[in-house]
Design a protein around this nucleic acid. Structure first.
Length: 329
DNA sequence: AGCGTAACGGTTGAG
DNA sequence: TGCTCAACCGTTACG
């Protein structure tokens, strides 16, 4: 059987390529660092690569947030709430209005200029996705809520699960969107919603736990917004308000509190343009240093050095998996 | 040995 | 509706 989601790094820790570490582990990293434990020891203890530990700690020091950044999407260059609002008004006043007419009106009314006016196709999309059927009053607002409640966006609730005895792909029938599964989150959370259990790293990182019958809790990354706001002053991770975390966990449940969870989620929902940068607004403003690697990767002259990339090919992680398996025996 | 980070393969979602 | 692309991720390995 081919491997699906979980991979094992050189330290024996589990990770999902391309996906952030669970917030609990991110929190644990910061917590241990504040206890004075060296990053290399944290790395070994949590079985997270030292590069990742370094990155998370650097980000925490820089922003105060342990949360990953907003993944995917684009910055809202044109579809700002104001533009949507105006389009909506145009459509309400004249339901038969064409997209190109809306575009012209946006320009004429000074809502947009020629540089940021949405394309006709964008306007059509706005009409379809954000405004929809205007015969239903206040549909836009209700659709926002519906979106939040349905939790269809991955970024509200990750669809992937950590490796379990049954892979996520196997656990959902073919053709059934993963989102359906994650909306109907099983209540099989860690046996107790205590921080000690939440931070029970062994449950996340120990291969024994992976192989065990309990496996991983399905969606530990749903623990939202564990950022500096949840920490008392001076980054006091140890003094973290446990109830706040518990509350976050509750938000992650598919209950009526989900909308509260969503509003606190690091991942910007579709309409949270104001917080595109994610981390519930905790991200820094312009061009954080970590974008350097993006510049470098894309050959941006801002990146230091224009040297050609060296032959720095690493082994595929599957090989690492084999190494880890060999090491375990 | 420990750390910072480039390179890489991956995911995501707005346009 | 499917694609593109720029954002992000964590791991690996180099210096």
């Amino acid at each position: 059987m081919e491997q699906t989601y979980g991979e094992v790094n050189q330290l024996g820790g589990v990770f999902v390529n391309g996906r952030p570490l669970p917030n609990a582990i991110r929190l644990r990293i910061v917590e241990l660092a504040q206890l004075g434990i060296r990053p290399c020891d944290i790395s070994r203890q949590l079985r997270v690569s030292h590069g990742c530990v370094s990155k998370i700690l650097a980000r925490y020091n820089e922003t105060g947030s342990i949360l990953p950044g907003a993944i995917g999407g684009s910055k809202p260059r044109v579809t700002t709430p104001n533009v949507v609002k105006n389009i909506r008004e145009y459509k309400q006043n004249d339901p038969g209005i064409f997209a190109w007419e809306i575009r012209d009106r946006l320009l004429a009314d000074g809502v947009c200029d020629k540089y940021n006016v949405p394309s006709v196709s964008s306007i059509s999309r706005i009409l379809r996705n954000k405004i929809g059927n205007l015969s239903q009053p206040n549909q836009y607002e209700s659709s926002k809520q519906a979106t939040a409640q349905a939790g269809l966006s991955y970024n509200h609730i990750y669809p992937y699960s950590y490796p379990n005895t049954m892979s996520p792909k196997m656990s959902s029938p073919p053709g059934v969107p993963v989102t359906a599964g994650h909306v109907s989150i099983s209540r099989a959370w860690p046996s107790a919603h205590t921080v000690s259990n939440i931070l029970g790293i062994r449950a996340f990182m120990d291969p024994a736990a992976i192989a065990g019958t309990e496996g991983y809790p399905p969606k530990m990354e749903e623990w939202s917004s564990v950022n500096r706001a949840a920490f008392p002053a001076a980054h006091t991770v140890n003094g973290i308000d446990k109830s706040a975390i518990d509350a976050d966990i509750k938000y992650a449940q598919p209950s009526s509190t989900l909308s509260s969870y969503v509003s606190a989620c690091a991942y910007s929902p579709t309409n949270q343009y104001g917080v595109y940068s994610g981390s519930a607004g905790a991200e820094p403003g312009p061009v954080p240093p970590r974008q350097r690697d993006e510049y470098a990767r894309r050959g941006d002259p801002l990146a230091d050095g224009l040297q050609a990339p060296g032959p720095r090919r690493r082994q595929k992680t599957t090989q690492s998996l084999e190494q880890a398996a060999a090491a375990a025996t």
